[in-house]
Each structure stands twice: as structure tokens, then as C-alpha cells.
């Protein structure tokens, strides 16, 4: 009997300690990444209405300031860009958003190359665990990790997905620290100031081999927008000095077929990958992300261009 009692006690004591410690760790993480959690809370919990939802990766998150867009266009923008997001995650973000918010009039999708990735991946799933009550978020996380139900009902099991960086950040958060580049202004936060991250050596050109037409997640986004009567617009974000052209052998052909695909689906396709803004390194933090100044300028350029499409509204 002693042994069975021991086993039960070990499980109960361990679960209790982990459960209690989890609250501290969770609090620490939410303190450290308060901007990101605030953004996810807005996207997946709250019910505010926005006229325009911007979707994409960090190249949306860091590049477009909705306050500038709001003031010029006279409609409300929300930046739903998520760092590291590819097609699957962008689709999940849209579904998660629509689960709680009224449909926006427009979805502006930053047509990153990652949109075309068919990998089922959340760049940093840890941040979604707090929002598992949102059905669409739950489904997206569950699609990538079959133990999601455990994380929802026994939150301390999330420890199994923590890496050292997250652990350190949680400790920093408990100590009251905050991630400097994690501000949140309607979903926007400026890019980290980086030095010397401009890769100018193009020794070999990577091949991408994306299937534009058969991409499930891109098609999901298109179908969802159609069903919800949302106007969808694609745009290709700014990139420093033709970086993608130099880096990827088949970049231009992918963009060309994407353009054709968008036309067939009656979706506007706007390119900002070869505008004058892209020639000055002052506007960029690295090859693919704008600096704070660059993002302000680009927000102006973007909304000026969008005015044409938003005019009916």
C-alpha cells in the first residue's frame, strides 16, 4: 500500500507545485511580452470592430502603423501581423479574429513568400496557449500539437513546450522587466534596431518551388473572405534593394504567377517591392524589415495606394 500511496502522492505534490509555479511563470511571460499578449487579446478575445484588418508576418507587424493609416483614410485599421507567421498561421489568425470580431470590410494581406508555405506551423505556439478558449485558435494549435487539450485543461503541461529563452523571459517578467520592442499600438510595434544585419552576399540563390494555386491556406483565406463578404487585397511589402530577387532564383516567376492567380480571383495585387523607399538603408532595419522611420513612410505610401480601393467604402 505504501508504494501506491507514494505514487499517488508524488503525482499530486508534483502537479500542485507545477500548477502553482505555472501561475508565476505565466504572469512573468505576460508581463515580459505584454504588448504581444495585449495584441492577441485584442485579436482573439475582444469584440471591437475594425474596418480594415492587416494580415501577414513580422513584415506587417513591424512595417505598418495603423494610427497613420487611420488618420489618412478615415477608417479604422488593425495590424494583425504576427512575427514568423506563414500561410497556416495567417489563416489561423484570420479565423481566430473572425471567431470573436464582426467581419471587417477589408482584409489586406501582406503577400510574403511565407503565405505560400504549406507547412502546418505556428512560429511560437506558446503565445497562443493563453487563448485556447477561442475555438479557431484551439483548432489551429491542436492541428500542430495533439496534446493541446492537456495545455488547456492542465496549463502546467505547457512547460513541456518551453525552451530556455521562454524560461529566461518568464523569469525576467516575474522580475518586472519588459521586452523593449514589444509595444503595441493597434497591433503595430516598431522593429528592433539592428546593426549590420544587411546580408549582401548572395553566393547561391535558393530555390523556392511554391505551388501558388494549390496552396490550402491561401485558398482558405480567400474562401473565408468570400463567405464573409470581406474584400481581400494582396500586397507585396517593401524589401531592401531587390533582396528577394537576389536571394531567390525563382522569385520573379512566383510573383508573376501570384499576380495572375490574384487576377483570376478578382483580388487586387499591389507591389511595393520596387518602390524608391527600398533604395535607402535608412528606411530598413535589415533586408526585409523597415526601420521605425521607414515604417512611418511606408504606412503613408500604403494608405495612399489603398485609398483607391477603399474609396467605395
Amino acid at each position: 500500500m505504501r508504494y501506491l500511496t507514494s505514487i499517488i502522492l508524488i503525482l499530486v505534490i508534483t502537479a500542485t507545485v507545477l500548477f502553482v509555479s505555472y501561475f508565476a511563470v505565466d504572469r512573468g511571460l505576460r508581463q515580459f511580452y505584454s504588448g504581444r499578449y495585449e495584441k492577441f487579446d485584442e485579436m482573439f478575445n475582444r469584440t471591437n470592430y475594425y474596418d480594415v484588418l492587416l494580415l501577414g508576418s513580422s513584415r506587417t507587424h513591424r512595417n505598418i502603423d495603423p494610427r497613420i493609416c487611420d488618420s489618412i483614410a478615415g477608417v479604422s485599421f488593425y495590424n494583425g501581423g504576427i512575427s514568423g507567421a506563414e500561410g497556416f498561421e495567417m489563416d489561423a489568425a484570420l479565423q481566430g479574429y473572425l471567431e470573436v470580431h464582426p467581419s471587417p470590410k477589408y482584409v489586406i494581406l501582406n503577400y510574403d513568400l511565407g503565405v505560400l508555405s504549406s507547412e502546418k506551423r505556428l512560429y511560437n505556439p506558446i503565445f497562443y496557449y493563453y487563448f485556447l478558449n477561442n475555438k479557431a485558435v484551439y483548432n489551429a494549435v491542436a492541428d500542430t500539437d495533439k496534446f493541446t487539450w492537456l495545455y488547456k485543461h492542465f496549463p502546467f503541461m505547457q512547460y513541456l513546450r518551453f525552451n530556455d529563452d521562454i524560461r529566461i523571459e518568464a523569469i525576467k517578467g516575474i522580475m518586472g522587466k519588459h521586452y523593449t520592442f514589444d509595444s503595441n499600438y493597434k497591433g503595430y510595434s516598431r522593429m528592433e534596431e539592428t546593426i549590420g544585419k544587411f546580408d549582401t552576399t548572395y553566393l547561391h540563390r535558393d530555390s523556392l518551388k511554391y505551388e501558388v494555386r494549390n496552396n490550402d491556406y491561401l485558398n482558405n483565406i480567400i474562401n473565408t473572405c468570400r463567405q464573409k463578404d470581406i474584400n481581400l487585397i494582396f500586397f507585396v511589402g517593401p524589401v531592401y534593394n531587390h533582396h528577394f530577387d537576389k536571394k531567390y532564383a525563382d522569385y520573379s516567376s512566383i510573383i508573376k504567377s501570384s499576380n495572375l492567380f490574384a487576377k483570376e480571383n478578382n483580388i487586387p495585387f499591389i507591389r511595393f517591392d520596387s518602390i524608391p523607399l527600398n533604395t535607402s538603408s535608412d528606411n530598413f532595419s535589415d533586408n526585409i524589415h523597415l526601420s521605425e522611420v521607414g515604417s512611418k513612410i511606408f504606412s503613408l505610401i500604403l494608405v495612399e495606394k489603398l485609398k483607391f480601393y477603399l474609396k467605395d467604402y
Binding site: 508524488i10 505534490i13 507545485v17 507545477l18 512547460y159 513541456l160
Partner: peptide, 14 residues
Amino acid sequence: DLLFCCSVLIMIFL
């Protein structure tokens, strides 16, 4: 024994 097993299990998780 309890202390040993609980500590090891908690260290595994953390």
C-alpha cells in the same frame, strides 16, 4: 523518497 521523486519530476518539467 517523496522528496527525491517529486524533485526529479519537477526538474524534468521545468
